[in-house]
Simulated scan of single mutants.
Amino acid sequence: MDVPRPASPRLSAALLFTALLLAAPAAHAQSQHECVERHPTPASLAAMFDVALRADEALEALDDVDVVILARGGQDLSKYGLRHSHLAFAVREDDGSWRTVHLLNHCKSPQSTLFREGLSNFIGETGSHTDLRVGVPTPAVRAALKTMLTAPGIQAKALHEPRYSVVAYPFSDEYQNSNQWVLEVLAAAIAQSRDGTLLVRRAQVQTWLKEQMYEPSSLHIGVGKRLGARFFAANAATTDHPASERISGNYSVVTVESVFDFLQKRKVLAQELSVAHVPVAGMSAPKPQ
Rank of each mutant, 00 (worst) to 15 (best):
L149E: 02
A151K: 09
A151L: 09
A151D: 10
A151R: 10
P152I: 04
P152Y: 03
G153M: 07
G153H: 03
I154E: 13
I154N: 11
I154D: 11
A156H: 05
A158H: 12
A158M: 12
A158P: 08
L159Y: 01
L159D: 00
L159N: 00
H160F: 11
E161G: 02
P162M: 01
P162G: 02
R163P: 00
R163H: 12
Y164A: 02
S165N: 01
S165H: 00
V167R: 08
D173R: 09
E174Y: 10
E174F: 10
Q176E: 03
Q176L: 00
S178N: 15
S178F: 04
N179G: 01
V182Y: 01
V182F: 03
E184D: 11
V185R: 05
A188D: 02
A189N: 00
I190H: 11
I190E: 11
A191W: 06
Q192Y: 12
D195E: 13
T197F: 08
T197W: 09
L198S: 14
L199I: 06
L199E: 04
L199R: 08
V200P: 05
V200Y: 10
Q204G: 10
Q204S: 11
V205Q: 03
V205C: 03
V205Y: 07
V205H: 04
T207I: 13
T207S: 15
T207Q: 15
W208P: 00
K210E: 13
E211D: 10
Q212Y: 12
Q212K: 14
Q212N: 13
M213T: 13
E215V: 14
E215D: 14
E215K: 15
P216D: 01
S218Y: 15
S218A: 15
S218C: 15
L219W: 07
H220N: 12
H220E: 12
G222A: 06
V223W: 15
R226E: 08
R226Y: 08
G228N: 05
G228W: 09
R230I: 12
A233F: 04
A234M: 07
A234W: 05
A234N: 07
A234Y: 08
N235S: 10
N235W: 07
A236R: 00
A237P: 08
A237N: 13
T238Y: 13
D240S: 06
D240I: 05
P242R: 03
P242Q: 01
R246Q: 09
R246P: 07
R246N: 12
I247F: 14
G249S: 04
G249I: 04
N250F: 12
N250V: 14
Y251W: 12
S252T: 09
S252L: 12
S252F: 09
V256M: 04
V256P: 02
V256C: 03
E257C: 09
S258I: 06
V259C: 07
V259D: 07
V259T: 09
V259S: 06
F260Y: 13
F260L: 14
F260I: 14
D261S: 11
D261A: 13
F262T: 06
Q264E: 15
K267E: 15
V268C: 08
V268Q: 09
L269H: 05
L269G: 04
